[in-house]
Structure formats: structure tokens, C-alpha cells
Design a protein around this nucleic acid. Structure first.
Lengths: 90, 90
DNA sequence: TTGTTATTTAGATAAATATCTAAATACTTC
DNA sequence: GAAGTATTTAGATATTTATCTAAATAACAA
């Protein structure tokens, strides 16, 4: 839970997740969407991987990142514990 | 969104939210659940208030804190954008 | 093998954060 | 008004974090 919230507590990392919502992307493609250096993006990807929010798959010299939303379900569960039982989830 | 994730990115603050799930509590009552100093808890409460996760209400010398979950809906919405449309929310 | 591209690792630095103690504020009661 | 209680503010400090540049690793291509 700690690593999950830590990973989500950064606008760049949340933007990366939103990018990956469209389709898997390589580290370089992700970096191209930002003005930060590649090492910086690599570090963000590392934190996302630590939180299990993304999977990485090396194909040749490229590393492709994909969303892994199973952990988000954990967050969803945490959230719903605050919902007063009457539910309005769409 | 930034202040929301920032507020949630701390185990003490999440524990405070879980305490308030039961019932409203005064700042002192909340502080009694932890070993941190009162100023530290006060600071955490301040961040929770900034994120609109709690409301504070001063009654005499006591300040009572209550959950305000309307912002959580924002988070819920953000989360659900990652859900692949087929839904499994309980 | 040599050069080129993709990505990560190492190390440094500035900014943000969690925590503390001491002091200030505000209310209550005598 | 003085003393006591509840809470917050101020200021300091140690840790964490986001970022950078330079270097390392790995794969491809010639």
C-alpha cells in the first residue's frame, strides 16, 4: 500500500500511467512525451514497476512497458471501505 | 489531484482517515492513537484538510474532525478510467 | 570488431517532507 | 484576571525525493 501510494504521488508517474492506458510503449517512447531526461523517466518507471503498476518486457534493445492494473484493485478496495455502503459506482 | 495524492501518501494520515471512519474525533483524541507529538498530528490533519479529506469544526476549545469523502469520488473516477469497461466493482 | 542506439546505473544536488521542542493562541473555570 | 487545557504556529533538523550529467550495459548493424 505504501509503495502504491508513493508511486501514485507524482504527476509525471500518473501521466505515464495515462499514456499506457492507450497502448504499451517502450521506455524511449514514454520519455519522448516529457521534457525530463531519460534517466529521470527510467527512475519513474522503476518506481511504477516496484509498485506493480506496470510490467516491463525486454525485446532486443527495447523495453516495453504495459499497464498492470491488478494492484489498482487493491486501491479500489481501500477506497470503497469509506463508502457508506450505499453504493454509486458506475 | 496533487494535494489529494500527497495527503494519502503517508501511513499516519491514512490511519487517521480509517479512525474517522468510525466517528468524528477531536484533534486530541486522534493524537492519542499515535506516539507522535501533537504538533506532528496537527500538521497531518492540516494536510488532510488541505486535500478536503476532512472537515474541521471548532466547538469551544475542541476541534472536531470528520471525514469528507466527496473528494474520494474524484479519486474513484480517476481510478475507474483504467478499468477496461467491463466492471467488477462490488 | 567498431560504431550506433536504447536503456539503466551511479553519484551529486536542490527541494520537499516528517518530525521534534518551544512558544503562541484561544477557550474555560475559578 | 489567573491558571489550566486544547490546539496550532514557528523554527530547526534529518530524511526522502526528483532531477541532472556522466558512465555503464546491452543489442544491433556495418
Amino acid at each position: 500500500m505504501n509503495t502504491l501510494f508513493k508511486a501514485l504521488n507524482d504527476p509525471t508517474r500518473r501521466a505515464i500511467l495515462e499514456l499506457l492506458r492507450e497502448r504499451p510503449l517502450t521506455a524511449g517512447e514514454i520519455a519522448d512525451h516529457f521534457t525530463f531526461s531519460k534517466p529521470t523517466i527510467s527512475h519513474h518507471l522503476d518506481l511504477l514497476r516496484q509498485a506493480d503498476l506496470v510490467n516491463s518486457d525486454k525485446q532486443g534493445q527495447f523495453v516495453t512497458y504495459t499497464l498492470n492494473m491488478t494492484v489498482m484493485d487493491e486501491l479500489l478496495g481501500w477506497l470503497l471501505q469509506f463508502k457508506p455502503s450505499s453504493d454509486s459506482t458506475p
